[in-house]
Write a protein that binds this DNA or RNA. Structure first.
Length: 736
DNA sequence: AGTGTACTTTTTTTT
DNA sequence: AAAGTACACT
């Protein structure tokens, strides 16, 4: 392989990043700066020019899709050599390490991976054990809290010592019980995968040394989105040789809510004082106008390293700003715009609509359906999260790991086979008492003759499980799934239903089988692993995201959240729902850090566009089933006016009195006229979505306005006091 | 044990 | 507005 070949077509900075193989290297890669290209050429350089064994490289990316793309491109450059490169996500790397080494931590190798739903169910159980309220919302909140702790690398003990108040104490107790439940079920959640790998390396330096020796060169993509635990993992692995290359862009850090710590990238030079820093500031994606506009927005954030992005793609068209009457009007405008573009010869695959929340996709779907415009929704309910798919997989999980209590709960009575909550409750109590798994408890129940009327049903169910478990080792995932669906009566029951829903479910199950077959084909030659094909299939499906599986068809419009859009690019982009309270989301209003993250998110959305960017907002929108009014997003007022063409229902721009204080350079999309309309809904300008302050409960958001006149009532969600119903007349609310 | 109905919650983003 | 949950009823 010739060194020159790998460097042709690269700009000097890119070439520098490819060539600098030894020691710590930070690549600050602005949006559209050819980051993936640099990463892949760098891998090719290390192997092809420096002559390293492909096995000595570890490259970690954020999504499986990114990993797959990179592998494809490396294969083009290196051919078969690329196979040896370990290229995957943090989570799947950790799974692979733990599958080999977890026994050193005194745990079993056939652990299952709990997804969010399993984990929430376990939290619910833990809450119940502490006699705390265990509603769905409580479980959700608690799971989130535990997840935060895990992302920061804190165990229950450390969590407790963090703050001394009642809430923290009890939450830490729940955390502890939750961990015990997981352990009893031989399960790890997403956070554990990372946490236990770090713990493994901490407690067993000889294991760490082995991996350090194996991976002489490390590459980490999207470094701005790593959390504390991932950071520790990277430091552990790079510890000896320090051949660590991280790539990222602080302006695109959008996962702080999930524990990502932007400091990891900002402090890289402090962590590695001898680090070489390469800035990629040439943009190969967007027009000058799109670049200027997005830069103007992101410049409102503080404490970011200066960056001067330039492009040579020409000025391009002005950005469009569309003011819609309501969400329907917004969708209508966008879909017409898309159809017009298609008529002018644009491919629908190059059109994308981005929104802040998944719920917004619906209006667009309806509109697209109306005109028969093909589309694909990326995200939302993931394929592997569909109930029937999870049910089918739960069978495999129980068969492979009989301790998997959450999976057992899922299948025990689906389809209904006469084992109801009384029986489950009995088994539960027994399993608590003798520290065994739920399945063991059920067997015990039978032995002791305590299964009551359900005894024969339980016996039949257990016999079925034993029978399937005996067959399983010989089967691949597709055959195993087919067998399980048939024998369990799951599929026959669905087939009998003959409703549109049941047909859709059957269709999803067929798709699952196809996926399983594809997996078998792709892994046919991988006999290296002594774990069964079914087990490996389960690992894979528990770690895929929707972006990984989405097929971006040439002939379909893509709809997705701005988060899902990261790493993608489209010729034409519509960024919709640009309203205060929605984008930025109102939970973020009071917190500068969160607000800056929203702004980065906006920046990410804008910089996906190559040629045309249209931003939309609606004056009125249906949310939670009721109407709400909101002001245009503050991010819109940060756009340079000269790059914009304004369209929409109320064409006259610039009324005075915006929420933005310095009006000089900024563009004012005032809202006065509509504040009056809102006043008609509720006296004094009170309407759903409005922020108010109460003398006792503090600040909150109006959810619902009921009735008229003096008896008018409000539901208000207070930031710290929960939801309250108030009579407007007596509540003495202050608008904020 | 299983089904139907009323009530509650949801919309922040996800490996 | 829709979906999931809890509870009462059969």
């Amino acid at each position: 392989m010739l060194a020159d070949d790998l460097l042709t077509g690269l700009n000097p900075e890119q070439a520098e990043a490819v060539r600098s193989s030894e020691g710590p290297l930070l690549v600050l890669a602005g949006a559209g700066s050819g980051k993936t290209r640099v990463l892949t050429q760098r891998i090719a350089w290390l192997v092809g020019v420096n002559g390293l064994a492909p096995e000595s490289l570890l490259a970690v990316t954020f999504t499986n899709k990114a990993a797959g793309e990179m592998r494809e491109r490396v294969e083009k450059l290196l051919g078969m050599d690329a196979r040896g490169v370990w290229l995957s996500t943090f989570h799947s790397s950790c799974v692979r390490i733990l599958r080999r080494e977890i026994e050193a931590l005194g745990r079993e190798r056939n652990f299952v991976i709990y997804d969010e739903a399993d984990s929430r169910a376990a939290v619910k159980q833990a809450l119940a054990r502490h006699e705390l309220p265990a509603s769905a919302a409580d479980a959700r909140r608690m799971r989130w809290q535990i997840d935060q702790w895990k992302n920061r690398g804190q165990d229950p003990e450390q969590a407790r010592s963090e703050r001394d108040d009642l809430y923290t104490r009890r939450a830490a107790e729940v955390y502890e019980s939750y961990q015990r439940l997981l352990r009893e079920a031989n399960a790890l959640d997403f956070g554990d995968l990372l946490l236990l790998t770090v713990e493994l390396f901490d407690r067993h330096p000889e294991v760490l040394t082995a991996y350090r020796e194996r991976w002489q060169y490390l590459l980490v993509d999207e470094y701005q989105d790593t959390n504390r635990v991932q950071y520790r993992l990277v430091k552990q692995l790079a510890g000896g040789h320090r051949n660590l290359c991280v790539v990222g862009d602080p302006d695109q850090s959008i996962y702080a809510w999930r524990g990502a710590d932007i400091k990891n990238i900002l402090d890289f030079e402090r962590d590695f004082p001898d680090a070489k820093v390469v800035k990629l500031e040439r943009n190969y994606r967007s027009t000058q106008r799109i670049l200027s506009a997005s830069t103007a927005v992101i410049n409102n954030n503080t404490g970011r390293p200066q960056k001067n992005m330039i492009t040579d793609r020409g000025d391009g068209e002005k950005l469009i700003l569309y003011e819609a009457r309501d969400d329907r009007d917004e969708a209508q405008y966008v879909v017409r715009d898309i159809m017009e573009a298609a008529l002018q010869g644009r491919s629908l695959g190059q059109c994308a609509v981005f929104y802040r929340t998944n719920a917004q996709s619906r209006t667009f779907e309806e509109e697209l359906l109306k005109y028969d415009v093909p589309y694909v929704v990326v995200g939302g309910v993931r394929f592997y999260d569909r109930a029937e798919v999870k049910d089918a997989l739960a069978w495999l999980r129980v068969l492979l790991n009989p301790a998997d209590n959450q999976a057992l709960r899922r299948i025990v009575n689906r389809p209904p086979r006469g084992i109801g909550k009384t029986t489950i409750a009995r088994a539960d109590a027994l399993s608590d008492a003798c520290r065994g798994s739920l399945l063991e408890a059920m067997r015990l129940l039978l032995q002791r003759g305590e299964a009551g009327r359900a005894a024969s049903k339980v016996r039949a169910f257990i016999a079925l499980l034993d029978e399937l478990a005996a067959e399983l080792p010989e089967l691949g995932p597709a055959d195993a799934l087919a067998r399980v669906l048939e024998r369990s009566g799951y599929q026959p029951a669905l087939e009998k239903e003959r409703t549109p829903e049941s047909e859709a479910r059957l269709e999803n199950l067929r798709e699952l089988l196809t996926g399983a077959e594809d997996f078998e084909d792709a892994n046919a030659n991988e006999a290296s692993d002594e774990r069964s094909p079914c087990a490996r299939f389960l690992d894979q499906v528990s770690l895929v995201s929707d972006v990984d599986t989405a097929n971006f068809d040439e002939q379909r419009v893509s709809l997705m959240t701005v988060h899902a859009a990261k790493g993608l690019e489209f010729e034409l982009v519509w960024l919709v729902g640009m309203e205060e309270g929605l984008f930025p989301l109102h939970a973020t209003e009071s917190d500068t850090e969160q607000m800056e993250e929203e702004r980065r998110l906006c920046y990410v959305g804008m910089t996906r566009a190559m040629e045309k960017l249209c931003l939309c907002y609606a004056l009125e929108r249906r949310r939670y089933g009721s109407h709400s009014f909101s002001a245009p997003s503050r991010f819109l007022s940060e756009l340079p006016r000269e790059e914009l063409e304004v369209k929409g229902v109320r064409r006259a721009p610039a009324l005075p009195g915006s929420h933005v204080a310095d009006g000089e350079r900024r563009y004012d999309y005032s809202f006065e006229q509509h504040a009056e309309d809102a006043g008609a809904e509720g006296a004094g300008g009170i309407a759903a979505g409005v922020r108010v302050r109460h003398r006792i409960y503090g600040a909150g958001t109006v959810l619902k306005v009921e009735g008229k006149g003096p008896r008018q009532k409000l539901s208000v969600r207070f930031d710290h006091a929960g939801v309250k119903k108030l009579v407007l007349r007596y509540a003495n609310l202050e608008l904020i």
